[in-house]
Design a protein around this nucleic acid. Structure first.
Lengths: 345, 345
DNA sequence: TATAGCACTCTCAATACGAGAGTGCTAACT
DNA sequence: AGTTAGCACTCTCGTATTGAGAGTGCTATA
């Protein structure tokens, strides 16, 4: 990677910023006129030539302006990573929205997705907090009519899953409650593996429920993330680069097919720390469908207890200066919320 | 409304079917050749002229083929409403999917949305079953750390809502369970209004919880439908009529903004019976954003106890012959599921 | 009543062309 | 050295023109 002179850096950043705004190849003349640099267009042309040589810029055709390459965007992002704080007024607005939202994980997730999509004008994705190796906290059994029972299972991290069971024969609410109480005493604080290693229960009802609890916890342990929330799917459709080709459709399809999305999230954030941001530009060779897109991702939560992730997808020329601080801020906010919920306040 | 001759009906249906397949204006010559009618193109031209006069067809420009008007589609739909049953093999496939899905309302909803989107190649929407005037069934209180309590409220119709409460001071799980038991005994089977009319509780904790329960039930009573599930948002993007204009974006935005969608659902299905299908063509003058779209809607569930609705949005030239039977079949399936869950089996 | 023929209309794809924007290079200037 | 002015060259894009093709409505005829 050849080193850039100060002037080249300035120029490169300027070009990219201009392209992000205008969505059109930027030429030397335009550059010289709009921003009152103390340089002539000819000098700029020379520097642009150099930057193109080094792989930061690209021309769509001979004799059109320059457009950033993925490498160029990467440089741009690395430059703004450490500065860029969200304006206080916007921070306040967002905090306020969370403050007055109904408490509850799924409302928070929905709100987070909505805020991200709104602020960044991109497609947002948020996964619910999830513990890698969740511990049992509580179970409730509620009889509906007949043999159907609603089971609500709460994990130590705050995850809640509900399920309808069909028992072999009708059981009264009273007996169900007793069974739940027994199980809660027995299982509190244990991980799946410990629970599975327990000896069988004498009571047949207890044993049935126990089996289902284990199933459910295993399923939760296997999945890499909690439930996935998205918003702003339509935002990206108005971007000019997606007007014609069906690249947009292919990118959005990823966000609809949760399995692919989970894979993506898993592979990219599995070993990233809470608080650190990751920016995926142009699919990084891995994701053909995202060739034209960028994704800004962050992990939030309390490591080891419950973490989730959130991010924004947009065209490669998305407004990073808006998106990056927003993602970082919302990640912090969600971390705080998870923290409050899990460990008292 | 002038009456149509048999021949005109046949011709009209043929034209619309052809247009739905080809997405291109259909001309008299093409019609005469492809379908071996015993008519010449000139005769067909005359009939087409008549149909155009009557408002069933329209020509995009002088001397292009004919395209169905909304009135035309309406006729088409009315003709196929009463026949059209979903092929047994597809019925079996869908039933099987539901059979082996994890039991639970939200899994069913997700699956229903997925099936509808897949079968119809359109955008699907499904609302969770919801009772107009739900009755209390059960509450559970689960202490997380500190003063935070997870409240799970179950309604007689099977609706479940969870919420995190912050109490004035920490309360042990034992006291919470006792409070829940007291409230369950007191409130079982009552509607919001009856509960609100009850005298205050002597115990402060009970009273606090009671207040929140009433709030929650009121909120549920006000909302016209349960949670909304959608799928297939990207399907519609590949349709040729949406390739250029941003009509697609505007239509999809409706499906993202839940409030508008709820309004739409409320206004169109509020007084429709379970089992009856409604087809909304071209927004019916009411919905500017849906000018180019059609929606097939149905209500499902057990009237008075818990009903929801489901539907498919697609371009006006969607495959009604595929969509209508699918919507009808899935509606029946969900009705059965709701029925089983609520009233035992 | 149905058909054949015909003149007419309108779209659409292909082609041509000129304006405009941008480039790279060379030579001169500081 | 680095910077600038000038210039020839290239490529895109919008506009205008044109001709083929498809479809129509009308009229005369079987």
């Amino acid at each position: 990677m050849p080193e850039l002179t100060e002037r080249q850096k300035t120029l490169l950043l300027l070009i990219i910023r201009d392209y992000i705004e205008s969505a059109q190849p930027v030429g030397s003349k335009r550059l010289a006129e709009h921003y009152h640099l103390r340089l002539s267009s000819a000098t700029i042309r020379n520097e642009m030539g150099a930057l193109t040589e080094m792989g930061y810029l690209r021309q769509p055709h001979t004799s059109a302006g320059r457009v950033p390459t993925e490498e160029g965007y990467r440089f741009f992002v690395s430059q703004m990573m450490n500065q860029a704080e969200l304006p206080a007024s916007i921070q306040a607005t967002i905090s306020h929205q969370f403050f007055q939202a109904r408490p509850g994980v799924d409302h928070w997730m929905t709100l987070a997705a909505s805020v991200l999509a709104h602020q960044s004008q991109g497609v947002s994705v948020v996964t619910a907090p999830h513990a890698e190796n969740g511990k049992y906290k509580h179970v409730e059994l509620i009889s509906t009519q007949g043999r159907q029972v609603l089971m609500v299972l709460v994990m130590a991290g705050g995850e809640v899953s509900q399920q309808i069971l069909t028992l072999a024969e009708p059981v009264s609410q009273e007996r169900l409650s007793q069974a739940a109480t027994r199980l809660n005493g027995l299982l509190a604080g244990l991980s799946v593996d410990k629970i599975a290693a327990l000896p069988g229960r004498p009571d047949a009802l207890d044993q049935d429920i126990l089996t289902i609890i284990i199933q459910d916890m295993r399923r939760a342990a296997e999945s890499i993330s909690g439930e996935i929330y998205t918003d702003g799917l339509t935002n990206v459709l108005s971007e000019p680069e997606f007007a014609e080709s069906d690249d947009a459709r292919r990118a959005l399809r990823i966000f609809e097919e949760r399995s692919t999305l989970q894979d993506l999230l898993a592979r990219t954030t599995i070993n990233s720390n809470v608080g650190a941001l990751q920016v995926l530009i142009g699919g990084e060779g891995e994701w053909e469908e995202l060739r034209q897109c960028s994704i800004v991702l962050a992990r939030y939560g309390v490591p080891g207890l419950a973490t989730g992730m959130l991010g924004v997808l947009g065209p490669m020329r998305m407004s990073y200066s808006r998106t990056i601080p927003t993602v970082r801020f919302v990640a912090g906010l969600l971390s705080d919320l998870v923290n409050d919920t899990i460990s008292g306040e």
